[in-house]
């Protein structure tokens, strides 16, 4: 492994260009891809810490497991479909030489994002629904955590939608650059990540 070799060699014993004339990035991926990966690790840390707090708080005794409204299932379906659309945008974009709004890649990308927007609205409705039925944020620590976890998750999704909307606008204006293919790729990866996070959160929320 070259990383291992790199950190174990004796730098004072070598003069010259050991790696040849090219500079050697540590990871053979684009900068954006690496930054996204690091960001997803940070986000995982955030969600893990929230879950740790969740379990610690659960042990205190005043915890009443909440009943999850059925609409959450519908929202989850939206998020899954959203991920599917973005993934198909990736697949289509590989086959297309130019990407426009009406192309298959462009359409899947657009619909995928809109489905995510729908998910956000859906979650918002769930919050209202819970509040109306007396299961508001203060009613029980389990409910507090429901609001906390869903809103932090939605906040991450909104970050993704911000990137998505910028690309969608440039797509509509027809001014997509070579970068666009990569943006689709990165959006899809991020979407899948947030989907996995959501399913994990949903599982925990529904079962405890």
């Amino acid at each position: 492994m070259s990383l291992y070799r790199d950190v174990t060699n004796k730098p004072w014993d070598q003069v010259g260009l050991p790696d040849g004339i090219e500079n050697k990035p540590v990871f053979a991926v684009s900068n954006e891809r690496l930054a996204l990966t690091v960001f997803m690790i940070i986000a995982s840390v955030i969600f893990s810490l929230l879950l740790v707090s969740y379990y610690i708080r659960m042990g205190i005794g005043d915890w009443v497991p909440m009943s999850i409204p059925t609409q959450v299932w519908a929202n989850t379906t939206l998020l899954i479909l959203s991920s599917v659309c973005l993934q198909s945008a990736v697949v289509f974009s590989r086959k297309q030489s130019t990407i426009s709004v009406v192309s298959r890649a462009g359409l899947s990308f657009g619909i995928g994002g809109l489905l995510a927007v729908a998910f956000v609205f859906g979650q918002y409705q769930v919050w209202g629904l819970l509040a109306e039925t007396g299961q508001g944020v203060r009613s029980n620590p389990a409910n507090s955590f429901f609001y906390l976890l869903t809103s932090v998750h939605v906040a991450h999704l909104l970050g993704g939608l911000w990137v998505w909307s910028k690309s969608a606008i440039s797509l509509i204006q027809g001014s997509t650059s070579e970068h666009f293919r990569q943006t689709i790729n990165l959006c899809a990866i991020y979407w899948h990540f947030l989907l996995v996070v959501w399913i994990g959160l949903f599982f925990v929320l529904a079962n405890t």
Partner: peptide, 16 residues
């Protein structure tokens, strides 16, 4: 992080 890991100039290994 990205700059240090990916963009170092030629010949600049991590241990340099």
């Amino acid at each position: 992080v990205t700059t240090i890991l990916q963009a170092r100039t030629r010949g600049l290994t991590l241990m340099r």
